[in-house]
Structure formats: C-alpha cells, structure tokens
C-alpha cells in the first residue's frame, strides 16, 4: 500500500483492496477498486447495503487504511459527512462550525464572521445559537454540511447523508448541495444506495457490486444541473441503472 498527496485528481484509487480478518477467516470487502474523482467533479457511488461503500469513504477520509493498492488524495484532509449529523451536542450550531475553523487554524478574530457566512450558505444564520437537539433532522444535517465546508477542503465525502431525512427535506438539501458544489468548486464523492438520488446529483454514477465490492459499471449523466429528481432524463437513467443493480443483487443472493 502506498499513500501520497501528489495527484492532479481530488482523489484516485488504484487497485484498492480492503479485507478484514474475523474469527480466523478473511473477508474481502473491497476488491481492486479503480476510481478517480477529478478536481471539482461530483461523483455518485452507488451500491447495495454492505458493499463496502462506507469502508471506501473511511479510507479516503484517513479513518482506515487499505489492505493493498494505491490511494492518492490531493489537497489535504478531505471533509466527511456521515449519515447522522454527528454534531457535538454540547456546542451550538455556530459552535460546531466554529470548531472546524478553529482546528483548521483560523485566527479567533476572523472566525465569528466566517461562522455566520457558512451558516448563511445553508440558510441557518438565524439558528446559530441553537443546540443540536433543538434543531430538526434537516437543520442538523445542514449544520453538518456547513461544518464540512468550513474545513476548506477540496474534497467533500458524503456517506448517505440524507438517507434518514423525509423526501421533501431531502429534495431541498439536494438543491442546496448542488448550489454549494457549483459555487465552491469542490469535488464531491457521494455514497448512496438510492439510484434516483445518485442520478439526480452526480455527473458520473459509479456502481459497486456487493461482497466483494468491485466497480461494475459507470454512467455519465449528460443532463446539466440544476436538474430535479422527477426529471424524465433522471428517471430513464435511473431505470437503466436499477436493472443492472437488481441483476447484481440477485446474483449475489444466489451465491
């Protein structure tokens, strides 16, 4: 395994394999993953539950290391958003965003203004003093999004961040995420098991198989943003991808 930070892409994986030894048995979770996310690119990573998507993001985020293969991350520590908002419950919404700036080394004088600007990006400037338990699920995930942006990273990793939200809130957050992505020029690697969501958001959709996770196929989404989840183009491509995904899951089930 080798790690380096010199790359022109936001992140590139070459033959990345991850296996765990459990009870004396070796389980291969990810098998020879080749994947590149260009600078400023939005890639959706799609797969059924248990295909190792989260493991893959964890490795890119530096929380875990590959068993073999090459993983190159350009532009420092990537930001990572989890399925849960994972806000620190003792800090206010503003405090959570502030901590990201503080750990990045932003001087105290400049932080309050930046906190408000980041909260404005996610339309929460009026709730800066609220604690996480006083916010709705969608608002919490927005704070988490502002905190991720506060890291100033060129790469944002997202691990099914909207899976626990209702459809309408999710729809709103999709639009806000796309806006942020276009405005900030960051690269996004978005993990989901929701085919429509993958197509709605990504410029490319990469499909992973289950156990072991391998890249099965990838699709380019030609329609430009902003697009909506109910657009016919999104629907067509989603139908096509779902067919391949279903085939994958059935094949896996017969093993």
């Amino acid at each position: 395994m080798s790690l380096a930070t010199q790359t022109t892409a936001a992140v590139s994986l070459e033959g990345v394999t991850k296996s765990f030894v459990h009870g004396g048995r070796r389980t291969v979770v990810l098998d020879g993953i080749d994947l590149t996310v260009g600078r400023g690119e939005f890639v959706s990573l799609l797969g059924a539950s248990g295909c190792g998507k989260s493991t893959l993001l964890g490795m890119v985020a530096g929380l875990d290391t590959p068993t073999s293969g090459t993983l190159l991350v350009g532009g420092g520590q990537p930001a990572l958003m989890f399925q849960e908002p994972a806000l620190l419950p003792w800090l206010t919404a503003g405090g959570n965003v502030d901590l990201a700036l503080r750990l990045r080394g932003i001087p105290p004088r400049e932080r309050p203004e930046q906190v408000m600007e980041l909260l404005r990006l996610v339309r929460l400037e009026h709730l800066a003093d609220r604690r996480p338990h006083q916010l709705s699920g969608g608002q919490r995930q927005r704070v988490a999004m502002a905190r991720s942006i506060a890291q100033g990273s060129e790469l944002l990793l997202m691990d099914e961040p909207f899976a626990a939200l209702d459809a309408i809130t999710r729809d709103l957050l999709h639009a806000e995420l796309i806006e942020l992505w276009q405005e900030r020029g960051i690269a996004v690697l978005f993990v989901t098991h929701n085919v429509r969501e993958a197509v709605r958001l990504g410029e490319r959709v990469v499909l992973l198989s289950s156990r072991p996770g391998r890249v099965v196929r990838e699709w380019r989404v030609h329609q430009t943003q902003p697009r909506a989840i109910e657009d016919p183009e999104v629907g067509h491509l989603a139908t096509e991808i779902t067919a391949v995904l279903r085939e994958q899951i059935t094949r896996h089930a017969h093993h």
Binding site: L63, A86, L88, W90, A100, L103, R147, Q151
Partner: peptide, 26 residues
C-alpha cells in the same frame, strides 16, 4: 462517531482531548 468527527476535522491528540473527549465526559 464523535471521535471520527474529531479526526476528520483534523484534531491532534491534545485537541481531541480538549474539544471532544473532555466535553463528552463532562
């Protein structure tokens, strides 16, 4: 999960104690 947040935000050992572990243990 909160420890992971600390790591992703780039906290070093001391910052992890100061900003994540001690407040969590309060």
């Amino acid at each position: 999960l909160l420890r992971s947040v600390g790591r992703v935000l780039g906290a070093d050992r001391w910052q992890m104690i100061r900003h994540v572990l001690l407040p969590a243990a309060l």
